[in-house]
């Protein structure tokens, strides 16, 4: 099996564009025979990551773009999402599962991405996020 070609999508920073990215990538994942559980995980992680890039990275400025590059084959999917923002440190986000944070309405996106993906990495600046999901590793990493 040869290396799968990389696909690139560039979207303006509008939240309605999140579905555009999801639809394209999930369609490819279904074509590759990914399970319902893996599709659920990819959809959830994509929703959180692209929404964060638009809202927190580019601050909803639709003159700025979010670039999504991905490769997918019958082993894994790798998705890199870059915004034009200043970047952030994911380790600075308070743990949303602590009792004192349970009633806080925000701050769960990053932990959900980490739970549902096989691996998650950031560039040094913190404005590019790479998500990898192995096809045969569908179950979330339960934080219990």
């Amino acid at each position: 099996m040869g290396e799968s070609p990389q696909k690139t999508m560039v979207i303006p920073s509008r939240l309605a564009e999140v579905a555009t990215v999801q639809n394209a990538i999930l369609s490819d994942a279904k074509d590759q025979g990914y399970t319902k559980e893996a599709i659920f995980a990819i959809q959830l992680a994509l929703d959180e990551a692209v929404t964060n890039a638009i809202r927190h990275g580019n601050k909803l400025d639709d003159t700025k773009n979010v670039t999504v590059q991905y490769t997918i084959d019958d082993q894994r999917i790798s998705i890199t999402i870059c915004d034009e923002g200043e970047g952030f440190d994911p380790y600075e986000i308070p743990d949303p599962t602590l009792d004192e944070n349970l009633t806080c309405p925000s701050g769960r996106g990053v932990m959900l991405i980490q739970a549902y993906m096989t691996s998650v990495s950031y560039n040094d600046k913190g404005n590019c996020l790479t998500l990898v999901k192995n096809k045969e590793c569908a179950l979330p990493k339960n934080s219990e």
Partner: peptide, 10 residues
């Protein structure tokens, strides 16, 4: 079938 962290927040 699907919900996001924003839905959890709501």
């Amino acid at each position: 079938e699907h919900l996001s962290s924003a839905a959890l927040g709501t």
